[in-house]
Amino acid sequence: MKEALFYKKLDPNRVSCLVCPHLCIIPENETGKCQVRKNIGGILYSLNYGQVSALAVDPIEKKPLHFWRPESQILSVGSYGCNMSCQFCQNFSISQYKPTLSEMTPKDIVQKAKELSLEAIAYTYNEPTVFYEMVLETAMLAKQDGIANVLVTNGFINPEPLAQLMPYIDAANVDVKTYDHLLYGSVCEGNLDAVLSTIQQLVVHNIHVEVTCLLVPGLFEDLGRIEIFFKDLRQLAGDVPLHLSRYYPRYLYKAPATDLAKMREIQYVAQKFFSYAQLGNVY
């Protein structure tokens, strides 16, 4: 547990968390929407600081990043909690619940990467924004040792925390859930404009960005609106690599897996705007 960054006291019993666009107002002894930032005695604490749910060596293509250090290996680390509540969450056991955890400091994580002769660390599995303090400290230490840092993120973060983190980030994969503003709120409890702003800021700061769209039935359906979205994304972010990933029934969302013919139709639309639009999670 560690005092959180980016919050303000509203009165003796309430604080406002400023790390993401929810701007949660948190009474004493309560947590914000992410379940991992808690008001204790008028101080906001990160409950998941130093708490690791998963640590693994992955191929970089699994993030997915296909145009940043291809065919390399990366140390992947995750904690628990999320600032969105996607009904189709693919990692709900750590995003929506508290799993079995191991204790590791930022120094421990960087040391593990060095022991394994790995040149990059990915903050992944759950949402890095909600273990922000852990990510920032680890990334700073890694950078000092010449180790690169990668975010695998939903992009739902406020501009100020993002700005403080970006100098230490080398690459990112941002997961865009849907092109529909209303569905982003009702199905994911997020905000599309905030996510697109994050993508734009990462690109502006010369961070390598690839974008994943999980093609969830009911969220990626209308080819006309999809074409408008891809056109807007191209104007906003440039010719970023695009990963069109197949959804499978998970968590609260029980629709059948994405139809492969539909995925190919969406891929065809995407290829009008992006040089690389690859189908993913298809075996």
Results as ranks from 00 to 15, higher is better:
residue 159 P to Y: 05
residue 163 A to D: 12
residue 211 V to G: 06
residue 179 Y to W: 05
residue 198 T to L: 07
residue 167 P to V: 12
residue 226 I to D: 04
residue 218 G to L: 03
residue 179 Y to E: 04
residue 174 V to S: 01
residue 224 G to D: 10
residue 206 N to L: 02
residue 147 I to S: 11
residue 144 Q to G: 00
residue 218 G to T: 05
residue 221 E to K: 13
residue 226 I to N: 07
residue 160 E to R: 09
residue 154 N to G: 09
residue 200 Q to N: 10
residue 178 T to C: 06
residue 162 L to S: 10
residue 203 V to I: 05
residue 195 V to P: 10
residue 232 D to M: 12
residue 199 I to P: 04
residue 231 K to G: 01
residue 174 V to M: 02
residue 168 Y to P: 04
residue 176 V to C: 03
residue 217 P to I: 03
residue 192 L to K: 03
residue 194 A to S: 13
residue 232 D to K: 15
residue 148 A to P: 00
residue 218 G to S: 04
residue 225 R to M: 07
residue 205 H to F: 04
residue 162 L to R: 15
residue 188 C to A: 14
residue 153 T to P: 05
residue 203 V to P: 00
residue 156 F to E: 00
residue 148 A to G: 14
residue 213 C to R: 05
residue 166 M to C: 00
residue 230 F to L: 06
residue 185 G to C: 05
residue 199 I to K: 05
residue 159 P to G: 01
residue 203 V to M: 00
residue 178 T to I: 05
residue 152 V to P: 03
residue 223 L to P: 10
residue 177 K to P: 00
residue 212 T to V: 12
residue 174 V to Q: 02
residue 158 N to Y: 01
residue 203 V to D: 00
residue 203 V to H: 02
residue 145 D to V: 00
residue 178 T to L: 08
residue 162 L to A: 09
residue 162 L to E: 14
residue 209 V to W: 01
residue 154 N to V: 02
residue 156 F to D: 00
residue 233 L to T: 01
residue 212 T to E: 09
residue 158 N to F: 01
residue 191 N to F: 10
residue 165 L to N: 06
residue 183 L to R: 15
residue 209 V to E: 02
residue 172 A to G: 03
residue 229 F to E: 04
residue 167 P to W: 12
residue 198 T to K: 11
residue 201 Q to V: 07
residue 225 R to N: 11
residue 149 N to I: 07
residue 165 L to K: 01
residue 219 L to Q: 13
residue 224 G to R: 09
residue 181 H to P: 01
residue 182 L to Q: 14
residue 199 I to Q: 03
residue 153 T to I: 03
residue 215 L to Q: 01
residue 230 F to W: 12
residue 211 V to Q: 05
residue 207 I to Q: 11
residue 220 F to K: 07
residue 153 T to S: 15
residue 156 F to Q: 03
residue 187 V to M: 14
residue 206 N to E: 12
residue 231 K to E: 10
residue 232 D to V: 11
residue 211 V to E: 02
residue 143 K to N: 12
residue 176 V to T: 02
residue 180 D to W: 11
residue 200 Q to Y: 10
